[in-house]
Amino acid sequence: MTILIPEEYPKKLIDKNGKRLDGRALDELRPFSCKIGVLANADGSAYVEHGKNKIYAGVYGPREVHPRHLARPDRGIIRVDYRMTTFSVHERKSPAPNRREREISKIIEDALAPTLFLELYPNSAIEVYVQVIAADGGTRCASTTAASLALADAGLPLKSLVAAVAAGKADGEIILDLGDLEDKAGTADVPAAVRMIDEEFTLLQFDGEMTPEEFEKSIKLIKKGAREIFAKQTAAIKEKFDTVRKETEEENKKIEKLVPPEEKITHASGTKEEEKAGEEKSDKAEEIKEEKEDPSDTKEEEKKPKKEKEEKKSEENK
């Protein structure tokens, strides 16, 4: 038992000016930011801050399925393990996985599967691990958003990213992106994930009471929120590479000033004579071969359209 610190539960979640507890408008998202490539070992990873939620997602795969009997000979499977740290919530959570975590893992699996080309990975699994470091209402949505980014970061072919956010009802109003208190004290909660390429829903739950008209309003609000999150997902990915680009452009300028063009390293231009000389110098046969083989990469890329057929086929089959 912890020492109870009385929390002021406000009577109203929305004030007379239509502002919410944290000052947001009814259709306004909480602060959102994200990053990819945050964990050194994972094949792909992402970090999401959505409100005060802090979530890491890491991906491995495709790799062998354990236990073996879960493998499917016709396609790959996706496995999600959503977990919360013991200290992510007010009352210390038991470290053992609970039913809620299992259920959320399952719905995130179903939310991500429609973006993957699972038919490419028979007998294999794509494993996604999601760890909620800090929780603030809406962890399943923020986790789905993070997991989708981690899949993309892993270089797995994807039809689309998904972005997830909840809508709900509080004080008779339909609101976007429920915070912790709105989640607990509100009258309805509709977490959802949207596949951004066609804006179809890949995750949907509902808890509370709403009229069909209110649900319609909610679903429109979710789409609006998802678009905003998606814009931030997109920007975060592009920014990562653009930052490096900017840095290197600075470096390029610096080098150009230092080195007059004619003095630039001769072997960088890779003329035939130099290449031959290099081969003669080489003391290992394999190294020569490597150099000979690799320029073929350009050719290979031209051949690639054929190779990628299987991926295209799989899309057509859909």
């Binding site: 960088a268 890779g270 290449e275 290099g278 190294e287 150099e291 690799d294």
Partner: peptide, 26 residues
């Protein structure tokens, strides 16, 4: 990123080998 480490006509791998005097197999 392998093609980039090899470079056009093997130019990058050659640069790496020449300047660092290392043997490399990619």
């Amino acid at each position: 990123k392998i093609p980039r480490i090899i470079g056009k006509k093997g130019s990058m791998i050659k640069l790496l080998k020449d300047l660092t005097t290392c043997r490399l197999f990619i």
